[in-house]
Amino acid sequence: MIVAALALTASLGLGWAMLIRWAARDGRAYGIATPLLFGALLLWCWEVVCIGFGVPRVLLPAPTEIARAFATHLPMLWADFVQTVVRAVLPGYALGCAAGYLAAIALDRSLFLRRGVLPLAGLLGAMPIVGIAPIMVMWFGFDWPSKAAVAAVMTFFPMLVNTVAGLSGTGAIERDLMRSYGASYWQTLVKLRLPAALPFVFNALKLNFTLALIGAIVAEYFGTPIVGMGFRISTEAARLDLDVVWAEVALAAITGSACFAALALLERVVLFWHPSVQKFALSGR
């Protein structure tokens, strides 16, 4: 007990002193290393507290226990991942985003419709849409289609609102230039306005992945076959196997941030010509 307290204070003091020194420096390496050190310090203190003070496993398993659970339950985690992410989230996400994108392009032709739909879409987007999960489970059954449907509905509105905002974002000068070229509506749309809307679209894509993941996981609380991340989390929590729950949460976190990072990378590759990315590249951060 005393040893643990000593170890904790020592590592906290040492780690914090190091953090202060690193945080005072500029440069890209320190910008990445400082938060990593902070995360490592947090994990280390978590471990020390759990082992040293004998925190019961039903309260908080130590990080090493979680890592062990992750390693031993790898096949099960993979099955849950396939069920929730590959079967439910990805199709739902793709469907919702594509529908939102196409609906935005359709709305673009009519100012009247846009004025009618946008306020409603904004309103609906701010609603607790996860609540439709029980209805979707009733319509599409316990398996992945109902989860994909929830994810699709949740991703639809942000994509719609963002794409419409992006499409109206081109300046008068650019549009005048297209008109002076004698470009038709569709040519202007494809060559000028859709590319110009891409930053907004990517914003929605990044935001939507987390939403889709949340939608699918929460929908599993309403009924599932006996596989899936949401199912596993709720049943293992009820059985007090918290190390498995934490492993599953870690999997969800890794999935969410990995997809976010992948989308951010894709954005930089696709939007290499855009000022926001160019500034990014020039400043080196």
Binding site: V58, V130, L242, W246, A252
Partner: peptide, 18 residues
Amino acid sequence: QTVPVLAIAPMVVVVLGN
């Protein structure tokens, strides 16, 4: 922000119940 925070809800409830 990229982590589905709602996934931890069942665990929080169980742990605090303990």
